[in-house]
């Protein structure tokens, strides 16, 4: 094996060992992320500007957090809990538009537009590439 190849191999091995250390560091963490947080961060604080109840310290947010906790203990599903808040405060209390009705466009439009324009770009490049070969 030539010296150059050997050097590249060394770098390759070095990178790999870094990688393994890196992976072992982070995969050590056991996941005990709780359900509350997932829910808190999906519910907006009704009296704050742009905060979810997870961040907000307003008293109403603290009350709402308690309500979430109680409902979890009652054995309700995430969906039921979110619906509970939606019925009382309207759609805007949920940090994400729902996947139904008009709101679905928020998800679909960007994906369609990105894919569509990517196709257009490729088409345009192809057309001009043929010109360049003339």
């Amino acid at each position: 094996m030539s010296k150059k190849k050997l050097d590249i191999l060394k770098i390759f091995i070095l990178l790999n060992s870094f990688l393994i250390i890196f992976v072992s560091c982070i995969s050590n963490n056991i996941d005990n992320n709780n359900r509350e947080y997932g829910l808190y961060s999906q519910i907006m604080c009704p009296v704050c500007d742009g905060q979810t109840i997870a961040e907000s310290q307003a008293s109403i947010s603290n009350d709402m957090k308690k309500m979430v906790n109680t409902q979890i203990l009652e054995g309700k599903t995430d969906k039921e809990i979110l619906n509970y808040f939606k019925e009382r405060y309207g759609q805007e209390i949920i940090s994400n538009p729902s996947y139904s009705g008009f709101n679905i466009t928020v998800w679909i439009a960007p994906i369609l537009i990105i894919l569509g324009s990517l196709l257009l770009l490729i088409y345009y490049l192809r057309k001009n590439m043929n010109k360049a070969e003339l």
Partner: peptide, 17 residues
């Protein structure tokens, strides 16, 4: 704003989107 204009519904678009 679009949702309010076309669907008459106030929504929040947060970090998950």
């Amino acid at each position: 704003l679009i949702s309010e204009l076309f669907a008459g519904e106030t929504v929040t678009v947060g970090a998950p989107y």
